[in-house]
Amino acid sequence: MTELDEKLANGFDRRRFLGASAAIGAAALASPLISACTSKSKPAKAAAASGGTAKSHYKMVWIQIQPQATSTAWGDGMQEIAANQKNIDFQVLDGQNKADTQITLMNTAITQGVDCIFLQPADSVGLAPSIKKAKAAGIPVITLNIDATEAHAAHVEMNHYFGAMDIAAKMGALIGGSGDVVILNAPPGITIRDLRTNGFVDGMKAKFPNVKIAADENAKWDRKTAGDTFTAMWAANPNIKGVYGVNDDMALGVVDVAKAKGILSKLVIFGNDGEKAALTSIEAGELTGTQYTDVWQQGRFAASAGIVLATSGTKASNMPVQGHLLMPYSILTKDNVASIPASARW
């Protein structure tokens, strides 16, 4: 057992450990950005060296699509890191599930002169003009999970593509390598939809070419909608063997319907994200599996990167390259779900 393992086993403060690792990760994420910036921008370098950009207080905003389990957990992770700094005002803003509302919030944040914007875009294309505006104002923008079509400071995501590939591999094996599977998808217009769908389709093609993607329908991230959509899919094709919900809520919506119809044992159902309700459902033998990511840690990484960029006086307009951080993940099934301790369930 290593010294670190011993410390962890002896109750070493997990949060401090994760916070520290987030800072290290963020530094790794931010350092190429800063070096790219400072090598091309002498004024910024000079200002930083002279301490001209130092401020006593910083303001950062987190513009989420709308409050739900994942975005709340990201916010909690960011808040934790921001609170440690003692000189950062951190504000959580609700985009009310509308791209135009997010644009208004972005515009107001730019007017406020915030030092960093954390954004979960409701639409990858729709928020691009606002990101451009923030960059022009020198404000670094860091996106979480949903990338934007306009390049920005950094993007921190759950590793959608490779996670979905692994889910396909697991599902293909569990259904015996052939048969019909369906996807309950996110609305179009966001990169996460394409990455997860492509990962799943490519993974299935590579490992189990005899598995057919029989249907791919938009269930709007929603548990009830997913249930209704799956009901129609099942009526049209009772030979479905596997279901991939591109988030846990949609997969749990299928579990609801499958339980009510008494067909749960006939289906292999995977979700994505790894929220607490999904893990509980896996333990109960209902949901087959999910891709788990520690989203608190994802929030900490994003916040740490934002703080490094803001406090170093790095201006967004000087960043030629968008940083990209893929979070580590696990594919959880009943066999390994117990490996996620209660303290890491969000």
Binding site: N97, K98, A99, I103, D123, V125, G126, P129, P187, G189
Partner: peptide, 13 residues
């Protein structure tokens, strides 16, 4: 024009 696209839920609510 503002979004340079038209999301399916444009105008909801």
């Amino acid at each position: 024009s503002r979004l340079s696209t038209s999301p399916e839920d444009l105008g909801t609510g």
